[in-house]
Structures are given as C-alpha cells and as structure tokens.
C-alpha cells in the first residue's frame, strides 16, 4: 500500500516535471520519435525479408522445364497431376509466350532480343512450390516422365539472398544501436538540464530530509514518459512512412515481389519497439538522476 502511494506520488511529480519543462520534453520526444521511426522502418523491411526468406526456404519455388516438343496438353496434364501430390502447392503452367513476357518485364533487354528473333526459344515450364520435406518424393515421381527436361530450384539465388540479407541486417543493427545510443544521450541531457533548472528545489527537498529516491524518481518518470510518447509517435510516424513508400514506390519493384507486398509489422513488434523506447527513457533519465549531488 505504501509502495502504491509512493508510486502514484512519483508519477504525479514526474508528470508535473514533464509538463513544466514542456519545450525540452517536446524536443526530447521529437528526437526519440525520429529514431524510433527509423527503427520501425528498418524492422519492417527486416521482418518482411525474413518472412519472405523463411517462406522461400520452407516452400521454395521450383521450375520444371519441359522438353521443347512437349505439347501444351501434355504440360497441362502433368501440372494437374502434380497438384494432387502432397507438399506441392501454387502449381502454375507457364506457356512460352507468357514466359517470355515475364522475362521481358524483368529484364527489358531480353524483350528486345525476343522481338528480334522470330521463334520463341522458351520451353513450356511448370512453376510450383514444393515443401522441403516433399522434394525427394516429387523428384522420384517425375523421374519416369520423359517430357521433363530439367528441374531448376532457386537454392543458389536463395543462399545469395540470405547472405545479402544478413549483411544488411548487421548494418541495420549497427544503425539501430547508434540511434538508441543517441536517443539515450538526448534523454540524459534533457533530464540533466531539467535537474539543473530545479537545483534550488532539489536542495530544499534534501534540507528538509527527503530521501534521494523521492528526489530522483520524478525525473526518472519524466524521462520514461518522454520515451513512451516518443515511442508511440515514432511507431506511428514509421508505419505512416511505410504506407507512403509502399503506395508510391514499391509497387514498381516487381522483380522483387515481396517488396511490393510489404506488410506492416505485427502488433507484438510494435509493443517491442515502444518497450524499447520506454527502456531508453528509463535508462537515460536514471543515469541523469543518479548524478544529482547530495547537499
């Protein structure tokens, strides 16, 4: 009960501090929100790449190229059959014309080459996703089919993408750490300034016997509130930025399909980001408050 009363006292004092030093609080919140917005942005990209890679890893896309003399009907029959197999999904028959269109879209140069040659050099192919556990059995099933020329899996591409993604995540983590440190430093300094501004009050409180925790806690609460508001603002700001980017830019990135389908973060990630922001506030302000001198 005593603890509860103390706590509500600290909160009230902290809130009073917070509103009293309004300009400084707003400054601090803005700095934090910018950092948190950037972190939100990065987390969203990271989260999407990660889910994409996981999906690719568990259900990789395969292309089965059929021999040049295969008819469309034969291809269609095989596709229908494949669809019935366990672990197989998203089966799609790609006819040469369509294949060329896709190619031309991804690599404009290929389109030019195509228009300069009469015959479409592409064979019929079947695109499908195969669960990693089913790959061996599907390959076994396909063995007797003479119309199957080759099976192409994007393993090489995937592992390239993965190493690229881990390099990028390292870079992102580095920037995130810098942003976090910068935010803590900002909060620390802002709280230091408010402490200096209230040095007179602090001295009086000590002279009448206030415990250090009574004097320090409101400043800690003040910093934590800055973290909370900065976090919420930054998360909103960051996700707003994502929607704008998605609407205006990513739609054009068709050769990296997951980028155009980029989703915003799950709620639990937002909770984590705001918690991070609160922790930054708590840490920066505790550090500042711990430097209050005894009188």
């Amino acid at each position: 009960m005593k603890l509860l009363i103390d706590f509500s006292f600290y909160i009230r004092e902290g809130w009073a501090n917070f509103t009293r030093s309004r300009m400084l609080s707003i400054f601090s919140i803005l700095i934090i929100s910018v950092s948190i917005a950037i972190i939100t942005l990065f987390s969203t990209v990271f989260f999407n790449v990660d889910t994409y890679l996981k999906g690719m890893e568990n259900n990789p896309v395969y292309s089965i190229f059929l021999t040049p003399d295969t008819s469309a009907k034969e291809g269609k029959d095989l596709a229908l059959y494949l669809e019935t197999l366990k672990g197989v999904s998203n089966v799609k028959l790609v006819l040469p014309d369509e294949g060329m269109k896709k190619l031309a879209k991804r690599f404009p140069l290929a389109g030019e080459i195509q228009s300069s040659i009469e015959e479409n050099p592409l064979p019929i192919s079947i695109r499908l996703r195969i669960n990693t556990t089913a790959v061996a059995s599907v390959k076994q099933v396909l063995k007797p089919y003479s119309i199957v020329e080759s099976i192409y899996s994007p393993h090489f591409f995937l592992s390239q993408l993965k190493s690229l993604s881990s390099a990028v995540s390292f870079f992102i983590a580095l920037i995130a750490v810098i942003l976090i440190l910068a935010s803590i430093f900002t909060i620390y300094n802002v709280i230091r300034i408010t402490i200096l501004a209230r040095q007179n009050d602090i001295a009086i409180m000590q002279l009448v016997g206030a415990d250090m925790k009574y004097i320090r806690a409101p400043f800690t609460i003040e910093g934590t509130l800055q973290g909370l508001f900065g976090g919420i603002l930054g998360a909103l700001f960051g996700s707003g930025l994502i929607s704008v980017i998605r609407a205006h830019y990513l739609a054009h990135f068709q050769y990296l399909p997951f980028l155009s389908r980029i989703t915003s973060l799950p709620l639990s990630y937002f909770a984590g980001i705001i918690l991070l922001s609160i922790t930054m506030g708590l840490f920066g302000s505790t550090l500042a408050a711990s430097r209050i001198d005894y009188v």
């Binding site: 009086i204 000590q206 002279l207 009448v208 016997g209 005894y294």
Partner: peptide
Amino acid sequence: IPDFRKKIGVVFQDFK
C-alpha cells in the same frame, strides 16, 4: 542524512 534531517525541523532565514 535524510533520516537524520527528518527529526529536525528548520525554519530557514530565507524560508526555502
């Protein structure tokens, strides 16, 4: 120090 001071009431010359 705080506990020590709690037992002493002070009327400061400049009020504080």
